[in-house]
Design a binder for these strands. Structure first.
Lengths: 261, 261
DNA sequence: CAAAAAGGGTTCAAATAATGAACCAGAGGT
DNA sequence: ACCTCTGGTTCATTATTTGAACCCTTTTTG
């Protein structure tokens, strides 16, 4: 692992529930030497990616990130374009919907919306990276994204998030194949207990899935009716998202989706 | 300069007008060896800070930046809080208003708004870092920010953006002192030709300016009336911004500002 | 249409920059 | 007064970064 990766990984320890982190805590989180971590923090701060609270000496994410995010959004206004579609689907279904983009061998949430009409609801953290083998989104990405994802993933043992997570390589391979023929991924409590979800791919400029759209429902609330309604609505919405992103759904998947509707 | 800084600097070459950059172009922009740049790009991409266009082989900003920006915004929703105030002031004055945060020895735009009611208008690029000695915002930051900024800045020769940029160290020192006593910075065409601007500091948790608020006007349109109106309105708005950010205006500056109004 | 240029990407010895055990300093706490 | 927990620094050792030269493919051009 190179120096750059080590430093950038430090940024990933931040989350809404953990917005400020001190030197010692970084050391334990990252498992690296204090001096190393400190120098990395200093350098990240010098570049505006972090800033230090002068009182507590803790570090928090800095303004450079906002500046770059503005550039990215202007170039490729994914969030702005996609948010309304996510909101509409969430409202129609009354459930949590999210769109995520692939970031290496994980999925990175782009935006989400929860209709908030039910008492129980799914907790969703936009700061958390989603694993490919444990989520419906991930399966959709494995099925329709770059081919190397699956083989790369199987190079190391699969980590279990819950006792329902697929950890057997052959099992995963078969599941991905089924998603490829069915066009929609479904997982029951693979990532979080008591949460079931459906996922489908969304496509960019060409042929390859760049992200996913998914619906997550508390398992207790999942009915046969929802199991019929969600895939249909999801396919329709994902097609729109793909169009908004200037992409095209590959013909063979389009045919599968037409049959499903 | 450490490896991390070199890599992160690569990200700064992106701008709305320059959203995708190839390996060779990065090499000339950064002045570093091609192999070095390439390895840095690969590593940034592996962490989601960049992504590669598979067709053109060019690199663009990646989804990790959006994810982190979401965390930062949730922790410290500066943009969300400040945007309405910027918009109101811009509408009231009919001119371009922006709020920027300090990022090392530069200012990083947080948000801006242009009333767009005039034919001529100031071009403002949220992706561009603002120098401290050439902009009204920068002078406000030098005057009310951390003390070391000015001395650090004077360690190297001052770069001229236009023929009006202050480049003489003594001149700069005097100008900063004047800003400290007057409470408002004014610069005529110091950064862009035909643009004049006023700038004031905004404060965070303690005593020290964390950012600035500024109004930029095409020099041709600058009247005596505007020169009276803008500082008053700016002071009022910046006070509100400071409050929104949970900060306080230092007492001595508050007194200066009261006299000005 | 062949040749050359230009862009992306890779290699490996040489050198520079990252590393980490030990150390310093201040703030609470007992 | 002592311990301890925090952030921060030092410097010899080590390992990672570096860059000239190279390869391959695409595009330009005489």
């Amino acid at each position: 692992m190179g120096t750059i990766t080590k430093a950038l990984n430090l940024l990933n320890f931040f989350s809404p529930s953990h917005p400020e982190i001190g030197l010692t805590e970084f050391r334990t989180l990252s498992g690296q030497d204090k001096a190393t971590v400190h120098r990395h923090l200093i350098e990240l701060a010098a570049n505006g990616f972090l800033e230090q609270n002068p009182v507590t000496k803790g570090y928090r994410l800095g303004p450079a990130i906002l500046r770059l995010a503005a550039v990215r959004e202007r170039l490729f206004p994914a969030r702005t374009l996609v948010a309304p579609l996510v909101e509409r689907l969430a409202t129609d279904l009354g459930e949590l919907v999210h769109v995520s983009l692939r970031e290496g061998d994980h999925l990175s949430p782009l935006c989400h919306h929860d209709a908030l009409i039910h008492g129980t609801r799914v907790y969703f953290d936009e700061a958390e990276l989603l694993p490919l083998h444990a989520t419906a989104s991930g399966l959709a990405m494995l099925a329709f994204g770059p081919d190397h994802l699956l083989s790369d993933l199987l190079a190391d043992p699969l980590e279990a998030s819950t006792r329902f997570t697929i950890t057997d390589p052959d099992d995963l391979r078969q599941t991905v194949e089924r998603v490829q023929t069915e066009g929609v991924a479904f997982i029951d409590q693979g990532f979080e207990l008591h949460v079931s979800s459906f996922g489908v791919p969304v496509f960019g400029d060409l042929q390859e899935a760049v992200g996913t759209m998914a619906v997550a429902v508390p398992t207790a609330r999942m009915t046969d009716e929802l199991k019929r309604k969600i895939p249909v609505a999801l396919i329709e919405a994902a097609t729109e998202v793909t169009e908004e992103l200037g992409g095209t759904v590959p013909p063979h998947l389009r045919r599968i989706w037409l049959n499903a509707a």
